[in-house]
Computed example of a mutant assay.
Amino acid sequence: MGIVKDVLYKASNKNLLSVFKNQSIFPYYHLVRDNQVPHITHLYPYKNSKQFLADLDLLSANYKSLHPKDLLENKKSGNTFLLTFDDGLHEIYSVIFPILKEKKINAVFFINPNFVENNEGLYKHYISIIITHLDKSNYDSDSLLKISKVFNFTFNNVNEFKKNFIGIPYSQREKVKEVLTLLNLDIHSYLKNEQPYITKKQIQEMIDAGFYFGGHTMNHPPLHQLSHQEQKKEIIDSVDWLRQNFNIDYSFFAFPFSDKAVSKTLLQELFTYDKDIILFGNSGLKKDIDSRIIQRFSLENPTKNTAKQIVTENLYKYFNKLIGKYNIQRK
């Protein structure tokens, strides 16, 4: 959360949730898990199954579950929620899928095709694995220096090292593999043994059970670090992969990292590719330039009260209206 949201969260009251119920909300998560896992630990916190179940109970008590087909048929109505999950992590199958089936709550899952089957993974996940390894050796200074030289950055302490390492640009992702070799970390064994991502067979099982899937780019790059044509290819290829491999007749897509720098031209080209495509951003409760673009907010932080978070998002919506930033501008 930013400074304004932090202030609003502290000032918010969970009992105000009933005031803000006449709307459709789109919360998103990445995973739900009851213990720490090396490829995520140093990137962001996440909820355990008990906390996730509590979220579902709260959402179901205050909103009606919106079915993804209602979006495709433009049947959005007030006081509804639709869950979405990014990155195609294994937990969407092993943990989340059984819970949602039991609760009879549908959802959309956004995946990166190049990581399906666990033959390769997201460079950010590799970085978290490396930091976990360094943590076990108490951040050996020699290893830190060697890594910083690979990426040509300096640091004064361990926290600064981690910040610089996690923040390396997408263009330097191949160098992360150099570091894995440097530290004698066998990433292929990790992918094979840990199975951090979902498989085609599991996706098919979830589709057969009535769940929906969407693209999330092929490799999960920060789109603003790519050329226009590279952005377009990453997006369309990921949607096409799902349509071709699972014989689905719809197009869902969620922008990785952020949708703030996505251009009006790119959006128009995506609507030309499929006029019925539904796009998902993560800018909170804001109005985009087209009704086919849906903005979401995260409920993943386990230290935040869910009801207060939803109230905060609504208070922030009104704050943005006051300062003229409720309507998203695309260049």
Rank of each mutant, 00 (worst) to 15 (best):
Q172M: 07
T41W: 10
F252E: 01
D274N: 15
A61D: 15
I40H: 07
Q231C: 15
K304R: 14
L72E: 10
P38K: 06
G2A: 07
L267M: 11
V179S: 13
L223I: 14
V95C: 09
T272E: 11
N119I: 10
V116C: 08
N159T: 11
S171R: 03
Q329N: 12
P113H: 00
I99M: 14
Q244W: 00
S263L: 12
L191P: 05
N193E: 15
N112E: 13
V176H: 02
G2E: 14
L59H: 08
H228K: 13
E120G: 02
K317V: 00
D86P: 12
L82T: 02
M206V: 05
E73T: 15
L242F: 00
I289L: 12
D142K: 14
N245A: 03
S143L: 09
I278C: 10
E230W: 06
K14L: 00
G281E: 07
L191E: 06
L279R: 03
Y63E: 05
L279E: 00
N327V: 09
L267D: 01
M206Y: 02
Y190M: 05
D6N: 15
L242Y: 00
F20H: 06
P222I: 12
V37P: 07
K101E: 15
P27L: 03
T303A: 14
S227I: 07
Y123T: 09
G2S: 15
V32K: 08
F165I: 11
L59R: 05
S77M: 11
Y190S: 05
Y316D: 03
K101W: 02
I105L: 10
N245D: 06
P27H: 06
S291D: 13
L223P: 07
Q244F: 00
E194I: 15
I293S: 00
S251G: 03
K21T: 10
K136E: 12
Y139H: 09
F252I: 03
L58S: 09
